[in-house]
Amino acid sequence: MNIVTLGLLAVLVAGTLDVEMAVITGGEYRPLYFSKNSEQISVSSFILDITPVSNIQFFEFIGHTPVWEKNSIPTLFTEDTYLGHWSQHDNVWQPEPSQNQEAVTNVSWFAAQAYCEVQGKRLPTVAEWEFVARASESRPDGSEELGYNQRILNWYARPNLNANIGQTPNNYWGVKDLHGLIWEWTEDFNSNLISGESRADASIDTRLYCAAAATDAADPSDYAAFMRYGFRSSLKARFAISNLGFRCAGSADDAKEGVGD
């Protein structure tokens, strides 16, 4: 397992924003919304934050780029609920100390993307995110493992928890918290159902409703994936939702420096 630290722009964002990243060796897989006979999707190698971004990290980021402060962010880029779980002290919106190590939520796609950009990173694509998220603790494709789907589903049957990041076990790639903590933004969250055929695209959302969704899914019993795709398609980039956060990804080339085993 390769862990790297991305030291880019370290001067600008000293200290807390540095986060361990896992190297994901590319491969192929067949996402839920493609039919059984469709071609597999190919994912190139990339690197991914081991944990979601925490409140304290996001607060640090705002310290450097105040345009993303709750009071200054243009309404075009988010809505009233932005960072709504923080409190205002001395006219500054900030997380309570108890929230520091919890995943930041109530952030819009724009703010998440900006956070990653500042560090020379980006949000992971849906394909990348799903590729990593299908891994169990012991293998890259957990869906073959007994009880894997049910374990993920159980999260939806629990009340919302406020837990610190990094508490769940490493998956095959050494990545944590992909399931069971929060939803996460992806770079192309709103285009994951694009088929490339414009007439089909016009009605593609209907595949999320009723029976249409299941007619040609590769694995109709993968309810957890149905829910993730369903959730993503309900979003707009300016939404700030109380259980939606993010983590950053980068190109595998950026991992050259400081690669450790």
């Binding site: 999260w155 939803w183 959302d205 999320l208 409703y209 009723c210 959730f231 398609s233 309900s234 939702i241």
Partner: peptide, 24 residues
């Protein structure tokens, strides 16, 4: 945790309102 919508069988129209009411 989930987006939701509503399909009312009393509706005459595609999806019974499902697409129109899809809400994050």
């Amino acid at each position: 945790k989930m987006p939701h919508n509503i399909d009312l069988h009393a509706v005459t129209g595609p999806g019974g309102g499902a697409a129109a009411s899809f809400t994050a």
